[in-house]
Design a protein around this nucleic acid. Structure first.
Lengths: 242, 242
DNA sequence: TAATATTTGTGCGTATGTATA
DNA sequence: ATATACATACGCACAAATATT
């Protein structure tokens, strides 16, 4: 027997993992449900039990399943675990979950700073601001819509650059900001409004997690302030208390 | 003129502050709104402007209002700011906000550990558990309902003690646990169910913030695991990113 | 309560295809 | 071309935790 499958050139254990993952995604194995035993999966796929174990280990690494000795392997919470840290980066979080992140600019425009925005961004009231409306995906599933305000004076071409790169991190890098951190985040919940519902592909009346946060440079200078709305059905914030 | 008001024995500036606070609480002054000018308030209450300033300073200290020189005084976020830290204590948070915390046991019963609960509490599946349903207030406004599970073997009289003290911290202290910390918290949102709606005095269809967390001793032993539902309209989680 | 079966976890040995020095 | 290292895959045996009878 060869190591790689002849057709696909993909390792056997990965093909088994993908098969199980599809089962979880399409609801064949609902959250909390027990998967078939390792030997049973091995027989079904006609592979060695070690190969199944390798596949399950990969899924467990990503948090999709959890093994319990003597009992079985169980499907974990299906929501995207989203850590709220100082170094929260959407692309890194989604990528770490084994999913493919994507960002998309859906609108942009010019605003003037309200009192609240001016305070958060450290500019004067009525200072010109750039407003970006973004939509972010994990594996083509919309996760969150966000409204970002930046100082128009400091980031004049922000809209065009985000449009091209699809990444806030890259946008800031273009202006020489290699690193930044998140200040305090304020989290609450609400009901999705009509336009967000369409963009997030959510039914009306569904809950959204609303996060207000401001990113600052390492020296404390405000860069951007955001108001994000996450589809609560698809996301779970994980807060590590130190 | 005396310092204390003749009738109530409460300082004048405090009476003014309470008056303004009531206005904020009942919606007369919505969040973000500009309060009347200091002289206007002074005239309305027939006090000196200095007395009003003393009152506003007290409110600003608690974060209810924010003064801006040359512009006015504005109502800050009216939601209860609820920090999610390792040392989160409901009573301390509410008290720090200048509001009066209260806890009430609304139900209790016996459960057996599901797989999930057993894992979180470090006990065996089907181990006997105590379930406490609690309702917590700030100034007589219901803030959150919580379901707490504890090991029945370790905390046999938990229900009676919570009933008497109305405090989780005191309950644990009764069993010799002087200090404890919160592990990871998982936060998401949902729609209030019928029974929670009644207890929280919320309209059906309103969003709730749902928090799953487990408290552990300083040495890492699991004590209690909780599923809390916060009225999203009244609470805002504050997450400090370190 | 006790014995038995099931299930995951661990270790070792063997073999082979792929990449690198 | 040869040697070495590495990842992949299979087979067997047993330990440890859990479930069942």
């Amino acid at each position: 027997m060869t190591i790689m499958d002849q057709d696909s050139g993909v390792a056997l254990w990965r093909r088994v993992a993908d098969s199980i993952e599809r089962g979880i995604a399409d609801g064949s194995y609902p959250a909390g449900e027990r998967l078939p035993g390792e030997v049973e999966i091995a027989d079904a796929h006609r592979v060695n039990r070690h190969t199944v174990r390798r596949a399950l280990a990969a899924l467990a690494e990503r948090g999709l399943v959890r093994a319990e000795r003597g009992s079985g392997t169980y499907v974990q919470a299906s929501k995207l675990a989203y850590p709220l840290h100082a170094r929260t980066r959407f692309s890194e979080i989604v990528g770490a979950g084994g999913r493919e992140p994507r960002g998309q600019l859906i609108a942009s425009g010019d605003d003037v700073a309200t009192r609240e925005l001016a305070r958060q961004l450290g500019v004067k009231v009525n200072a010109p601001l750039l407003r970006l409306e973004t939509l972010r995906f994990a594996d083509r599933v919309p996760i969150c819509v966000g409204t970002t305000w930046l100082s128009a004076a400091r980031f004049p071409d922000a809209a065009a650059i985000y449009q091209r790169t699809g990444s806030m991190t890259k946008l800031l890098a273009h202006y020489g900001i290699r690193d930044y951190r998140r200040g305090v985040s304020r989290v609450t919940a609400g009901i999705v409004d009509a336009s967000d519902a369409a963009r997030l592909d959510l039914a009306l009346g569904r809950p959204v997690l609303m996060v207000d946060s401001t990113d600052v440079t390492l020296s404390g200078e405000p860069l951007q302030t955001k108001h994000s709305r996450f589809a609560a059905d698809r996301v779970e914030f994980v807060i590590e208390s130190d």
